[in-house]
Design a protein around this nucleic acid. Structure first.
Lengths: 208, 208
DNA sequence: CATTTTATGTTACTGTTTTCACAATAACTC
DNA sequence: GAGTTATTGTGAAAACAGTAACATAAAATG
């Protein structure tokens, strides 16, 4: 499953709309949104058109109703509990963002790690052994998970998660995980993201 | 600057090739690489063809020479020093990955934060005030930076970095940064990545 | 050493995404 | 309230990306 660019853009529009709203604006034009989201006004209108979102000729879009539509489109009208497997550097960073970073409708319910020294029950994010995954996932209607374990363990963890009913995965391990068709997977390899930047910098130097 | 998919795939092929090499293989076919990287064999060959990389009819590709070509293509024959601005959760996580996570040719040289309580000179990653950025960037030939500050501060930090000569930026702040044409920027919004997964899960439920 | 096999490399095709152009229309102006 | 202006919505065109087909050539076979 490759996440389509128009979905990512719509999510970005939503973030920009939130900022416009905070600044006290009530209406917005495709030009404003495009400018804030780094795309052309035509692209904004086309994206809205694709998802049946309409505005007003000459008067643009009403921010509140646009936000409502987008929130409904993205299932943000209810809370989604998710879990993190792997409490290494990245896992811990994500766990700490529970209140500040992840948007309101996403809540990191629990975390898991193989290492017993990382387990706890009292302070902050609860961290459990992997053996607790089936129980916690099924009892709390959890369908989405973040994998932040080392590459060597990622496929095994992935298989376990799918077995217990996980349907959506965000994978930080630098390996392309094999999943059945019904599972949505999103691969995020941070070193690749840096490498790509370096490539383009080199390319620009070469062709000057 | 949007990073092209074929560049990301080539970087993934490189990771897979490394694993094949570790396992003792010396040759590889487009079928193997495609399978490991989650794409079709035709896609692998097409990507290689695009960048002038050739193998041997019937005998596939020699892993070592393929890795050499890719390493040269991605400027991995020399070390790239980079910096991190913002030692919040994400910044600290990235800083800790210096030896394990970031590939050999990328080295996080220093980190910066506004908060004086995060500064230090002794243990682990050195963390400096933002005022030290111009000096350290220019003295160490640094052209790439990671921004992991809050959204509200990101554009200002971005402008400062570009002023002192940074040419490539990986941005974790949930805001689309405005940069001049000569700067390569890669936006990574982790909450958006999760939101996109949730969208596709909802969509699948709706249309069943 | 002729034949068969098998994997590459490229060309042609198909599909998708983005850009462009402009008709439609709501709001504004005088 | 007629005329002007500004912005949307969309159909067509262009650009881009991915897939498929197949000619080519190296290796294997016997």
């Amino acid at each position: 499953m490759i996440i389509k660019s128009n979905i990512k853009r719509l999510l970005q529009y939503r973030i920009c709309l939130g900022k416009f709203k905070e600044l006290g604006f009530t209406r917005v034009y495709s030009y404003n949104l495009g400018n804030a989201a780094g795309v052309s006004p035509e692209q904004v209108r086309k994206d809205f058109s694709t998802y049946g979102i309409t505005g007003n000729k000459k008067a643009g879009y009403e921010i509140s109703s646009l936000l409502e539509i987008l929130n409904r489109l993205f299932g943000m009208d209810k809370t989604h509990n998710i879990i993190i497997v792997g409490m290494g550097n990245m896992g811990r960073a994500l766990a700490n963002y529970n209140e500040r970073f992840i948007t309101q409708h996403v809540y990191i319910y629990a975390a898991f790690d193989m290492d017993p020294s990382k387990h706890n029950k009292t302070s902050g994010m609860p961290v459990f052994p992997l053996s607790k995954i089936p129980d916690i996932v099924s009892k709390n209607d959890i369908t989405t998970a973040i994998i932040s374990v080392p590459a060597i363990a990622a496929q095994e963890v992935c298989n376990l998660l799918i077995d217990v009913g996980i349907k959506g995965i965000l994978n930080f391990a630098p390996i392309v995980l094999k999943v059945p068709d019904h599972v949505v997977i999103n691969h995020l390899n941070l070193s690749t993201e840096i490498d790509a930047i370096i490539y383009y910098l080199n390319e620009k130097l070469d062709t000057r």
